[in-house]
Nucleic acid binder design. Structure first.
Length: 231
DNA sequence: AAACCGATCATCT
DNA sequence: GATGATCGGTTTA
């Protein structure tokens, strides 16, 4: 159905892994093109697949919203590697988030996977996410998606373009979202200069898209000097 | 060595 | 909509 310009095969089998060339493009092209694709996670208990419905683009070292903003560290090293690999990080002391690295090696761009619809492996996903009241909540939010798919630090740096049928993580062609259904807006929870760009992409009306939350300008924690009473 | 902070979620009101 | 939970990475002293 696609014309091939975006790196997908001309006659895509939904279960064909996306080629690395798909990811070796500007992240702002890759992010919306990921909507409707399927991410396959293979565990010892079998596959869990999710249809991606919400993503965010992070543009590299010049993007103040990106973990790459302050340069390469051990934590974000996989973002600086070649496209088509996972970048997994730990957040808020409790959760894992999954990104797909994009662009040429060194550009440190990536796409945060923020929401999706679980297509197969509901039983596994539900066991990991007992708080989910409906199937739509299984992967509605980046940490929920990672939890449903059993993604943690062990998958940081994983190649997601592998054709190995046993690969732990792979992105398949799926059924790309109709561009007319793709909506954009500012990134969730990103403040400062990083908030200006509409680099969040989602499928309009899909129930597995997480609610938008604006950045909270965290009030600095009160010091113990008590020199300044409240206004 | 210690403080600060966060690409969040669940559970309240 | 507000808040607590919880901890690694980074910055600052």
């Amino acid at each position: 159905m696609t014309d091939g310009r975006d790196g997908t095969p001309r006659t895509p089998d939904p279960e064909t892994p996306l080629p690395r060339s798909f990811f070796d493009r500007p992240v702002l092209e890759v992010a919306p093109a990921l909507l409707g694709r399927t991410l396959v996670r293979r565990t010892s208990r079998g596959p869990v697949t999710v249809r991606l419905t919400e993503v965010e683009a992070y543009a590299g070292e010049r993007d103040p919203g990106s973990h790459a903003y302050r340069g390469r560290t051990r934590r974000n090293a996989s973002m600086f590697g070649p496209g088509g690999h996972a970048y997994v990080y730990f957040i808020y002391g409790m959760w894992w988030n999954l990104n797909l690295v994009c662009g040429p090696e060194g550009s440190a761009a990536g796409v945060l996977l923020r929401g999706g619809e679980i297509l197969t492996g509901h039983e596994q996903a539900r066991e990991r996410r007992p708080a989910a009241r409906t199937d739509a909540e299984l992967a509605k939010g980046p940490a929920r998606l990672a939890t449903s798919l059993d993604v943690d630090k062990a998958l940081d740096g994983t190649d997601v373009c592998s054709a190995d049928p046993a690969a732990p993580l792979a992105v398949h062609a799926g059924r790309p979202a109709d561009p007319a259904s793709v909506t954009t807006g500012p990134r969730t929870g990103v403040g400062g200069d990083g908030a200006a760009h509409p680099w969040r992409f989602w499928i309009a009306g899909d129930r597995t898209v997480s609610p938008y939350r604006a950045h909270q300008p965290r009030r600095r924690k009160r010091r113990l000097d008590a020199a300044t009473p409240d206004a």
